[in-house]
Design a protein around this nucleic acid. Sequence first.
RNA 1: GCCUCGGUAGCUCAGUUGGUAGAGCAAGGGACUGAAAAUCCCUGUGUCGGUGGUUCAAGUCCACUCUGAGGCA
Length: 317
Amino acid sequence: MIENKPSIAVLLGPTASGKTALGVAIAKRLGIEIVSADSIQIYRGMDIGSAKPTEEEMGGVTHHLLDVADINGPKFSAAEYQRLAREAIDLIHAQGKTPLVVGGTGLYISALTSGLDFTQTAGDEALRAQLAAAEAQRPGSLHALLQKEDPAAAARLHPHDTKRLIRALEVKRLTGGSMAADFAAGGAGECPYAPRMVGLTMPRELLYARIEQRVDAMLAQGLVAEARGIWARGYDRNLPALQALGYKQLFAHFSGACSLDEAVEAIKRETRRFAKRQLTWFRRDERIAWLDITQYSPSGLLDAACDLLQTEKEGSL
RNA sequence: GCCUCGGUAGCUCAGUUGGUAGAGCAAGGGACUGAAAAUCCCUGUGUCGGUGGUUCAAGUCCACUCUGAGGCA
């Protein structure tokens, strides 16, 4: 009945909800370290557009999992994130502290708070390229293939969901296993930690207004120059890192596909949609204690968050 | 003051010879296990400016009225 799993505190929420600042404040008060759960802040050189905290914003609090990958380096993955983050967490636990995971990438957070077990098969780029080509040539062929090789997985995937179809075929062919089993598990496997989760929320209108303001602030901070610097390196525009909000739309502008104004509008629109998807992901996790930031004063919010995140600790100490 | 063209979904608009309305965009909901800020699926939310009239039946025809743009005086 008594679980002895080490606890982790998690602060999550959609983009522009104020996680970064609150996270630092919490870490300072509790004297702990932060583990970022952000799929874009892992990239070196993508600072303004990813809203990566500056040295000043970090306020002396140690942040893990920032700047751990290169834009054109080996393909990063959720599995890689899980490995690195667990290392960082173990290190923090070794110091007798509770790590505070802060971020908005749902899959990454789930990789730490649930039993998500990525199979031991790394991606096979050649196979992926081959499958992608087959689908491009004859749409629908991947789903038909999967139907033959792994009907259970095929039943879970839409014929248009090319990325997952490729992955399912990859898993089947390389390991003989089935993605269907993973889907069915729903991440319910063994989680090495006891997570304490707090989510930041607010009325949708306010969130959208904050997104608008933040994109404008990024532009004022030099987002265009940062993106142009990366653009100038001539990387393949299809790199995963370059699909990031802000960069992707500005690259379209640099290539002459649209005006700067149009790119900025697209960034704001796509960021809104992203926030909506984040909320969809988080909503299904009943473990999250939601704090509506409009219901608290800044210090009240900090108190409430610390309270929720610490309860477990008090109980176990 | 007169004339013309508009007023239909959050926005831009379409609505055949009268049968209580539909596209794009925006938006909302959902999925998600090695690309996840990615990828994919679903959804029309409406006193058709208002009032009265003709009609079995009005977004559609008639009258009046409110309102926007333009034109003529």
